[in-house]
């Protein structure tokens, strides 16, 4: 059996998790540094409502760009992200079956779950888990979320993050990410990862390291931040209104906490660009991280509050 192409790998994993009953989401269309930051994870893990989802997520980390010159490093890589809330008892076995589904014969390989706890100070989030090692290669981050947006979680969600380029390079036995076969055309000719993405890696490395306008990026950051903050403050005002003046609960439910989250994501990405440009001084750095964290925590609180109201309504 020949190894799957890059896109077959994605399709097979998606099919596996769709069969399991996950909502197959599409990638979130705002820049994120990791699949965790997409609302399908960051917001869905909050509150009591069970949820299962799988989605592909391009993750952009401007500082990791290498102008397409390094065979193992990318500015933008693809993750397949699975959220199981709550996790089933056989979640590890389920995960191992997903590896079989992409053609890995576990009897012929060495699998280890090695301690690796995940933490994101910017998101006020942390979890306990492992990096899954396949013949010495880290192929998946497996995390039991404990806290998100500064909020203790119950139920707990399990998050599986497959690093798709690594997995594909492993399966296809190639040494450079750019040599991964993305697909085979009708004429049998291969289209490689390099054909599809090399120019993008080069140009975005150039942009992020050399061209991104630092001053404008700061301005963008301030603009997004102030709007996000205003929305977070606005939520508290609406809540107060419903409590004191008996305004309709509908006011709360329609309040755009999700809009605020998009703005928060924009801030996070701009921070990453400024960081790649070396534009954030030591003294500023901690402060900016704290500012973004405040946005993420503020949105998480508002979102959770909305969920609880809807939940109560549904129960009543």
């Amino acid at each position: 059996m020949s190894p799957p192409t890059f896109q077959e790998l994605i399709l097979k994993l998606q099919a596996f998790w769709a069969d399991y009953g996950c909502v197959l989401q599409q990638p979130y269309d705002i820049e994120v540094g990791a699949g965790t930051m997409a609302p399908e994870t960051f917001l869905r893990v909050l509150g009591p409502k069970p949820y299962r989802t799988a989605y592909l997520q391009p993750s952009r980390r401007p500082a990791d760009g290498r102008y397409g010159e390094n065979p193992n490093r990318l500015y933008k890589h693809l993750q397949l992200q699975v959220i199981l809330k709550p996790p089933p008892n056989d979640v590890q076995e389920l995960y191992l079956r997903s590896l079989q589904a992409i053609g890995i014969d576990l009897r012929k390989h060495d699998i280890k779950f090695e301690e690796d706890n995940w933490e994101s100070p910017t998101l006020g989030a942390w979890g306990i888990g492992w990096q899954v090692m396949l013949d010495g290669l880290e192929i998946t981050q497996f995390t039991y979320f404990q806290q998100c947006g500064g909020i203790d979680l119950d139920p707990i969600s399990a998050e599986l993050t497959y690093g798709l380029e690594r997995l594909a390079a492993f399966l296809q036995d190639v040494d450079s990410i750019y040599d991964i076969v993305w697909t085979r055309g009708a004429d049998g000719k291969t289209v490689t990862y390099g054909d599809v993405r090399l120019a993008e890696e080069l140009q975005f490395s150039v942009y992020n390291f050399e061209f991104a306008d630092v001053q404008k990026a700061w301005q963008h950051l301030q603009l997004y931040e102030s709007e996000c903050k205003a929305l977070i403050d606005g939520y508290a005002a609406v809540k107060k209104k419903t409590a004191e003046e008996g305004a309709a609960v509908e006011e709360v439910r329609r309040y755009p906490a999700l809009g605020a989250f998009d703005l928060c994501l924009k801030c996070s990405h701009l921070f990453n660009i400024l960081d790649a440009r070396g534009a954030i001084s030591v003294t500023e750095r901690v402060g900016v991280i704290a500012r973004i964290r405040a946005l993420a925590v503020g949105v998480a609180k508002a979102y959770l509050d909305q969920q609880q109201i809807s939940f109560r309504e549904a129960a009543a």
Partner: peptide
């Protein structure tokens, strides 16, 4: 954490990772 590497696949994989 397994009982052998009859096809040499595990060795091959580990060598690949180390090379990278």
């Amino acid at each position: 954490n397994t009982d052998g590497d009859r096809d040499g696949m595990i060795r091959h994989g580990n060598e690949r990772v180390l090379r990278a």
